[in-house]
Design a protein around this nucleic acid. Structure first.
Lengths: 187, 187
DNA sequence: AATTAAAGAAACAAAATGTTCTTTATAAAA
DNA sequence: TTTTATAAAGAACATTTTGTTTCTTTAATT
């Protein structure tokens, strides 16, 4: 793919990311993005149909990265999280949120954090929650399986919200402990 | 207060509510609201500074109603939910969501449901979660109290999301059972 | 019936949107 | 290198939305 396209795409993502940590999604205009990314108007619309589309693609980028390596699919060689060891998996995801070159925490901290966590939850529903639950579901208590999946995802989103609200004053390891404590009885 | 103001305010709320069940918040323009509510432009701006302001006030209206009667504060004479009996409390809230003349389910079902559940969570944090937890916190496991409060609120929001996603194909009683099953070990 | 306050209509500048066209720069292929 | 093709920039445009203003009409309170 053309290097120019790559550069433009990156510039837009980065500019958008910077804006998102300083103002809310709904208040960000295409004009702002154009100015911040320093690209032409035409160029923006050549890459993204709308601001909403940009948002979606950014989320894909962000979260597919978070869930990538080892975590998704069976491609993993890391036996520590192949079966069991949910603790490791959770810590892993949280570090991924922290780590990144991209601006995930910045974006999540901004006014539109909730919006992103909405997308995040979709990924959790597909990639994390089902791996925490056995195929079994919980305690045979007659609770729908997808209710439990949803519960775990919601709880994880809640965890992240709490973490951010408390200005990251906890390590991923501590958080994993908390999470397991409230979720373990279910899985 | 002047009846005219009341009528206008109601007209705007209702029109806005109708719009919200058919299109997403971000795509709704002030012009749409004006047309739908059938009030003058000037009138709208006399009542609400911005669309965001309208949103906030609508949420206040909606959720303060849901949490009102008996539920909030000590003003309750309903001993069934004064202490304990969380089951009753949850069922109660869920019925309130269903019941209403207002369009809560419609709004929650619309594209901006998440947005509203964000506001909803704030109310839960203040009014529901702390009453489910004793003053004690959980199992003495060294987990921050406000983490647990947040966990419960997140879980409840998740429950409502799941309920809506499944087109309300569960009774509040059933949902309360599910909720207690996943949350009881914590409280 | 007189006073007060709200609603409605019309018009406005400013900003944002999405599109079209031309020119310039950059990458890939020969 | 030279050629070819394609992406980006820039400018201009009609539309739409926004938030305000001015003025008139209508309804409530006293």
């Amino acid at each position: 793919m053309d290097r120019r396209q790559q550069k433009t795409r990156t510039a837009i993502f980065e500019g958008f990311g910077r804006l998102l940590s300083s103002k809310s999604y709904s208040k960000i205009t295409v004009q702002n993005i154009i100015d911040e990314a320093n690209v032409g108007r035409t160029t923006f619309y050549a890459h993204f149909e709308t601001k909403d589309q940009l948002l979606k693609e950014l989320c894909s980028d962000l979260f597919s990265h978070v869930f990538s390596e080892n975590l998704s699919a069976e491609s993993t060689h890391d036996f520590s999280m192949r079966t069991g060891n949910p603790q490791a998996m959770i810590t892993h995801i949280l570090y991924h949120l922290l780590d990144n070159k991209q601006n995930i925490i910045g974006i999540l901290t901004g006014e539109s954090g909730e919006l992103f966590l909405g997308f995040f939850k979709q990924y959790l529903n597909e990639l994390m929650a089902p791996r925490l639950l056995g195929d079994t579901g919980s305690c045979g208590k007659n609770i729908p399986y997808d209710f439990l999946v949803n519960h775990i995802s919601s709880s994880f989103v809640g965890l992240v919200q709490w973490w951010i609200k408390n200005r990251l004053k906890k390590t991923p390891e501590e958080l994993a402990d908390y999470f397991m404590a409230v979720i373990e009885p279910v899985v």
